[in-house]
Every structure is written in C-alpha cells, then in structure tokens.
Design a protein around this nucleic acid. Structure first.
Lengths: 211, 211, 211, 211
DNA sequence: TATGAATGAGTCTTCATTCAT
DNA sequence: AATGAATGAAGACTCATTCAT
C-alpha cells in the first residue's frame, strides 16, 4: 500500500511540511494540498510517498518520537552515576524544549499529543495498527535502568523500581508539557533548580542528602 | 448567535451526548447528527442550544473543568494541615480517575486534552476567544495556598512557592494522564504510597522526615 | 446505509436525471453533480436518497427492468392463444422501442446494458449483491408459459420448452438491441412481418402452417 | 500523436494485457498502470504504442472484431449449399464461445460490448471517430450472400434478403450473448439442435422440410 | 420551540498523461 | 526506445449549518 520511498530527501521534506501544517491547523484540518504546497511538490506526489493521510500521521509520530528519544537514550547509556543522570535527564527536558522553541516551529511539538490521542482512541476501538500503550511502556522502560542502578547502589530509597520509574517519567512528562505551554512565565534555571531539589530529595536516601 | 437555553436539562443532555460522541470519534469526526441522536433530539435542536460545533467544545471543556476542579477546591479549602492536604490531593487524583473509569464512559476524559490542544492552537494563532494558558495559570494558583501555607509554616522546604506549585501540579497532571492510560498495569494503593513517599520527601524539610 | 426515501417524487426525479446523465456520459463518466443539477437539487441531496453512485445504478436498473417487464407480463397473462401471444410479443418489442425513441431520451435505454455488464462482472468477481444471471433466468421464465402452452396444445413443435424459451427470448433480445441501434434503416412494419414469418414458421407444427 | 509501433510483438502484448485488465475491472476502472505491469513494461512505454487510453479501446475492439469475423467469413466463403452454411454458422457461434470460455480469459469477451456501447454513445454525440452503426451494417452484410443464395435458389422463403439477414444475425447475436452468460445451464448439443430446428424451419420453404 | 430535509463548500484520493533521464 | 517519478484535474462523498414548517 504505502509506496516505497524513492527519494528520501523528498520524503523528509513532506514530513517536515506535514508537521508544520498539522501543528498550525490540527490533524483533521491540515490539508494534504497545503502540505504538498509547503513541500514544493504536487498534491499527487504526496501519495507517491505515503499511502494516506493517516500514514503521514504515523510517520510524523515516529519522526518526533525517535528524535526525542535519541537525546534521552544517549544520556541514559552514558557511564555516569545515577544521581547525575537523573539531574541531567531533568535538565535535558527543559533544554530540549527550549531548543525546540528557539526554532521557528517549536510549537509543532503539540501534534505529537494529538496523534497520540487519536492513536490511543483507535487502539481503544480496536482499529489501531500500533499499540500506543505498549509504546508508552517501552518509554518508561528506557528510564528504568537509572532507577534500578540508584536503588541497588543504595543511593535511592528502597522502593519498587517499576513504580518509581513510572512516577518519574510521567511527572517529567507533565512538567515538560506545561513548561512548553508556559515557558514565558518561568525562569528556566530557577525551574531546573527547584525541580531537581524536589525530585532528588524525593528520590535519595536521607543519608545521601546534602548532595 | 447562541440563544439562551430554555431547557437546562436538555442542554445537559446534549453536552453529555457530545462528550460521549467526541470521546469515541474524536473532535473532528464526532458528528452533530450523532450527538443529536444520542441526546434524543432533532439535529436542528442542537443549534437552539449551541451556536456552533465549536461552542459545544467550549461547553464540554467547561463542564469537565468545573467538575474536576470542584473536587480539588473542596480539598484545598478544607481546614487541614498542608502535609495532609498534599497527601489528599495526590490520593484524590488517582481516586478521581478510578471513579471516572468505573463509569461506562471513563475514557471520555481524553477529549479534555484534545479540546485543550485545539484551544491552545487557536490562541497561538490569535483566533481563540479563551486564553488557555491563562486558564492553566488559574489552575496552578488553586494549589498555591497549600504550598504557601506549608512553606510559611516551615514544614516545606524554603523554595519559591510559584515554582513549587507549578512543579507539583504539572507533575500531578502527567501522573494522572499516564495513570489513566496505564492503570491496568499498576496497583493503585502501591502507586499512591510511592508517589507520596517521593513527593513528600521532596517537599518536606529534612527535619520533618519521619512524618 | 441507503436512506429511506422521504419524497418519492424527488426520488423519481433523481432517477430520471441519472438515466439521462448516464446515458449521455456513460456510467463512469456521469457525475453526481450533473445528476443533481439536472434534477434541480443540491449535490448533497442526492445522498439523502441514495447511499452511493452504485445504489443509483441499481435503482436505474430496477426502474428500467420493471418498466420493460410490465408490458411483457401483461401480454403474457392475457387470455389468448399462444400463437397470437407470440406475435404480440414480437410486435411489442418493436413497438416498445419505437415508443422509447419517440421520447427525447430514447437512447437512454443503452445504459441498461452497461449496468448489466458491470453487474455481471461484479457477480463474476464475487462482489455483486445481485445475481444478474439469476435475474436473467427469471426473465426467460416469464416467457416459458406461452411456449409450454403452445407445445402442450400441439400447436408448436414438440421441443424442450426450456430450450425453446431461451432461444426465443434471447433472439428477441438481439433483435431489439440491433433494431434500437439501426431502426432508421428498416421499415418497422416490414420487419415485424418478416420476423413473425420466420419465427412462427420455426415454431409451429407443419400442419399448422397456413395460419 | 500515436507513434508507429516499433515492436509489433510488444504491441500485441499490450493489447492482450489490456483485454485482461478491462475485462476484469471494466473500461473505466482498468488502469494503464495495471496494463503496463501485466505486459511487463513500463507505464510510459504504453504511450509509445498508443496515444491514449481510448486508442487502446479501439485497438482492443479491432482485435476482437477481426478475430471473430475471420471465423465467420471463412465459413461464408466456403463453397457449400446455403442450408449447410446456415447450420454451420449457428453451430460455429456456440462452438466459438465454448472455445473462448475454455481459455482462462473467456469472459474477456464482454468488454467488446462495453467498447461498443461507449463508441456508440460517442457516435451519437458526434464525437466518435468511427461509425459503429456502419460497422454493424457491414457485419450484417457478411451474412447476406448466404441468405441471397438460399432465396434465389428457392430453398429459403421468398422474403427480403436484407430483412432476413438482419433478423438472422441479430438473433444470433442475442443467442450468443445469453449463451455466454448462461452456458452452464444448457446442454450445448441440445441447444444447437433446437436452434437449428427453429431457425431452419423458419427459413426454409415448406416444400424443403424434411431436409 | 423543535425539526430534519436540503445544501454546497470542502477534501481526500485516483490516475491518465507527460517528460527528463 | 524505455522508463517511472511527478503532476493536477477531476469527482465521490461528508457534514456543519440553515430554514421552512
């Protein structure tokens, strides 16, 4: 169904255009015609690279997802003590969003949520091809090694690592979204400090305090 | 344009139907005709109560928002020490979602996000009538008194209450969404415990530990 | 799927317009927009009466079919000796086409063939909802009683009535189509005479000749 | 526009592919891309051999027409008495269709009708390049010599040969189409017998009976 | 006040055809 | 001569909204 990509650069251009258009107009309101125009190609050409609008959603999602995860996995895979990693993870979340927003189309990030929502609904109805909840759990698991390492080293409180990971990542997710929506109203450095103060103290063994 | 509702019960029925329909089909795919049918009225009648589909979005949003906030404000206004309040706020978040999901249409909650997204996009484009970021900051502020009280009483760490509030609420928001999407995979009581363990320790003065 | 007809007269008007349009432009090339325009209604209204273009094909087919068959069945059900009936059936075929062609849109008749062709192809592919070969055999059977009566009365040759019926009707069908395509080149009365001369002599017992 | 074919074998392959595709999908739904693929060539190459889709229709029509007529003309040109010829013509019609249907793509025959229909419509609108009614009359005329010979020899009834020819051929055409659509329901040999019984008796002088 | 028939702007998608390689 | 990537005109169908009853 989905045709094989002939020209990878053009495919990227379509995805970039799609992100812009969907971010500006919404998933439903974003028109294929606009995407084509913005990508500088004919309307029909879009269908040489993607089988349908929905396929574009999927590609956009994957693009965003991969890009975002790359940063985290690099952090997590680095040889470093878990406390430092946690700090970096939090810092990175803010920095990544700042980096995004420096870009002309930083707010494009929001369609990630919209695609996710739609995908989740489809999954719920049994229509979806992708299990978004499974994707989610995969994401949590990326952070689990840090937590496990910290707990095993006796640096973090002795809590169930699955639960701690869930709480950490999802809190971080909430933080990110709202920071994204409100970044003008907060000082990033101060926010970073307070965030780390709260989460590290929440996480660390009492004896470790003073860190 | 939007005529005053003559029959408040019917208006409620339309909103309820709209929530169901939008939750199942999405904001764009949800049809006025389906809403009318589910509400047991004629298609044209919907327009006697709402000026447009977008007005229904707004009404649905307000309905959800008010309902959700009511619970929190009751907690917050109660005479109680701030530590206890924070605990209750976290517990309530999980309980509220559990309560929602017991209902046949628990997942309807998700459209809240979708409406928010659309509203935010409109705001960004300067089209929106409502400032969703202002709404957001109002929400944060609901929680600020607890934080301020705790800090002033010397029970919470001496941090900027605005920042603490932001972090607390937005973390809670992330927690809630992901709990909603994954509640089958976690034991609620255990999750409550670990959540409170982390956040309270993150919040409380070292001397208060053991509380 | 197919909505219930609200206004039977309007439904008829749509069918009439569809016949005209399809006859002029072909099944595939005939546009819903043109049909609507010719019927004096909006494009969307067509879909209030028919679920899809294909549904219109079916309705047009049924309309034609019923109309054509009505004439034949009246003939066949009349109390009359079989020889006379056969004569009338042949005469009627020519007369009916002449009648059609007197009408401004006589050539519209041709789409009957096209719908039939498409339906038959769909049946072949297992897609079709209607079995066109079954319809065909039903049609043959309408004529069988005349043949059976003539054979039993000893007026027609002693041949298998199923085969005689098939040959008679299908020959008549070929005659009709070609007459339709070439009527300007033949004198109808003379054609009627020769047709009857050949078919009656082919059908009648030798002793009956001179009839 | 239509370039001269360079490779006659390839041209034939395209026509063969086109027949298959059109027969399976219909004239409008049959795609050039599918034809090219089935012919084992590139899409663009089709246009090296045919100027347009419509040109392919014409080529397909001609191919079919020539093939079908070849059989008849061979029969008709053979030195043989007219009664025998008529018998052979009828037999041949059934045999030819049986032969076609033994082939994997026997039903491809139907597109002949569809092309004819479209051509006739174009002729009616004054667009067509070919006069399909003229083609038709040419076909009738192929059979006329047999009829004339039989009448002149006093073997056939003394009727206008033009009319007899028209009736014979068009009846034969109807017979063929319906036989094609229903051949599973009839015994071919029996059908041949009854057909000849009826048509020969209809045609022959009474004194010739028993022939 | 309630209705639902009518509407047409709007959008995805298809595919014959072109043309640079 | 052969190709297939690119194209955009075209068309079925949807659905929010209107308005006569």
């Amino acid at each position: 169904m989905t045709p094989l990509p002939k020209d990878e650069a053009k495919r990227k251009r379509i995805i970039a255009a799609a992100i812009e258009v969907f971010a500006h107009d919404g998933l439903s309101n974003g028109k294929i015609a606009t995407i084509a125009e913005k990508a500088g190609i004919g309307k029909g050409t879009v269908y040489e690279y993607f089988g349908s609008k929905e396929d574009i959603f999927a590609a956009v999602f994957k693009d965003f997802f991969d890009q975002m995860m790359t940063g985290y996995t690099q952090l997590i895979d680095a040889p470093m003590d878990p406390v430092k990693k946690i700090e970096l993870v939090f810092d990175y979340s803010y920095d990544y969003l700042d980096l995004l927003m420096k870009d002309k189309h930083g707010q494009d990030w929001l369609i990630f949520l919209e695609i996710f929502l739609q995908g989740f609904r489809d999954e719920f109805k049994g229509i979806g091809k992708l299990s978004f909840s499974a994707v989610l759990r995969e994401v949590y698991d990326i952070f689990k090694p840090i937590v496990e390492e910290g707990i095993q080293a006796g640096v973090f409180r002795q809590l169930d690592p699955d639960y701690v990971t869930f709480i950490l990542f999802t809190a971080l997710d909430g933080l990110s979204i709202h920071y994204f929506l409100n970044r003008d109203h907060y000082d990033t450095d101060k926010l970073k400090e307070v965030t780390k103060e709260i989460f590290l103290n929440g996480l660390l063994q009492p004896s470790q305090k003073g860190n």
